[in-house]
Amino acid sequence: MLNNFFEYFKTKNELLFSYSILCLAAGCICLILSKYSSLQVTGLNAWTKPFKFFISFGVFAFTMALYVVYLDNQRQVTNYCWSFIIFSSIELLLITVQASRGKKSHYNIDTPFDRVIFALMGLSLIVVLIHTIFIITLFFTQSQFDASDEMILAFKLSLIMMVLFMLQGFVMIKLFKHTVGAEDNTPGIPVLNWSKNYGDLRVAHFFGMHALQIIPLLTFILANTKRDVYLISLLYFVFVTFTLFQAFQGKPFIR
């Protein structure tokens, strides 16, 4: 049964599917390291951040593997897959390097080496973002899909929302922090570490990015018409936007 599961998803997009498995495996290794390592970064185990990023990139790759199979221009899809794998791997490698050094990976310009790493991380994500936007345009220029109109609409709307809240990451870079009302590293909720006492811009970033999974899932469960898809997407967008305004007001998402 497990073999059938893997074979099914490999037929969707073997490159991204295989990469997602590697990321999830690396995330599990980081989780194990966090249980046995005493290395700390800003009061948290150093391997917590690599764990979260490996899982996040793995889920993203897995989801895109399901979506891009519906595009006719598979040559461009293959180019995108390799671009994503190369540049996201650079990002993940640099985060892991900084964790192993007991250093912050984000917003760290303490030394010339740290500044180079932070700059390379930013450049890598910009390449991923630009190429992802290009792939999204293919969903809007292609006229026929081997899927229901409702599901393709859900893909399109979730991809737009994902990009919008990917761009929100540049707000955090401009502010050079993600906490509103205090400096970073205030007490946070378990695992995600969102601030329990102040606004945290990572909340909207998280939910906006995961529109990619949530909107199509809700469409599959609840939607019967395109109107349903628009309503689901609108309500989800309102929810994510609310969390963003809440953060800018310095209010925590969860106390």
Rank of each mutant, 00 (worst) to 15 (best):
V59S: 09
S89E: 08
F165T: 01
F237H: 04
W47H: 10
F140H: 11
V238W: 01
A154E: 05
K251G: 02
I232K: 00
L231C: 10
Q168P: 00
S143Y: 12
F51Y: 11
C23G: 07
L15P: 00
F253R: 00
K226R: 14
F54P: 04
Y107T: 09
I29T: 12
N108C: 12
E183D: 15
M161I: 13
F6I: 11
L22Y: 09
F237L: 15
Q246V: 08
M172F: 10
K156G: 07
G27L: 04
F220E: 11
L71P: 00
M64H: 05
S195T: 07
I160M: 12
A211I: 03
F139H: 07
S143N: 13
D146V: 10
I117N: 01
T179Y: 00
T241I: 13
L175V: 06
Q249A: 15
V128C: 09
L123S: 10
K196W: 05
V163C: 09
F17W: 13
S233Q: 02
F9D: 05
F6Q: 12
Q168C: 03
E183K: 15
S195H: 06
I189N: 05
T219F: 03
L93R: 05
L123M: 14
C81D: 08
V77I: 12
L123P: 01
L94E: 02
T96P: 06
P190K: 12
A147R: 08
T78S: 13
Y107M: 15
F248G: 04
M151Y: 12
N3F: 14
A211N: 01
K35S: 13
I90W: 05
N108Y: 09
L201E: 01
T141W: 08
L39I: 13
T243L: 04
T111S: 14
K10F: 09
E91P: 05
F139Q: 05
V41N: 03
F5W: 13
F6W: 14
M209C: 08
T63I: 14
D114A: 15
N4K: 15
F9P: 01
F220L: 14
V229C: 06
H106G: 06
G122K: 03
E91L: 14
L222M: 12
A46D: 03
H210L: 08
F237N: 04
G199T: 06
F87I: 05
Y107G: 07
L222K: 10
N197W: 02
E183G: 15
Y230S: 06
W47S: 03
C81A: 15
M161P: 00
P112C: 06
S233V: 00
Q142W: 08
E14I: 11
F242A: 13
I173C: 05
E91R: 10
W82Y: 15
V229R: 02
F6V: 11
W82R: 12
L44V: 11
H131D: 10
F118C: 01
T111K: 11
F253T: 00
G122V: 03
L157H: 00
S195E: 04
I189D: 02
S148T: 13
V180W: 02
S195Y: 03
N193R: 12
I136P: 00
P252W: 01
I109T: 14
P50C: 06
G250V: 09
T48Y: 10
P112W: 07
L66Q: 10
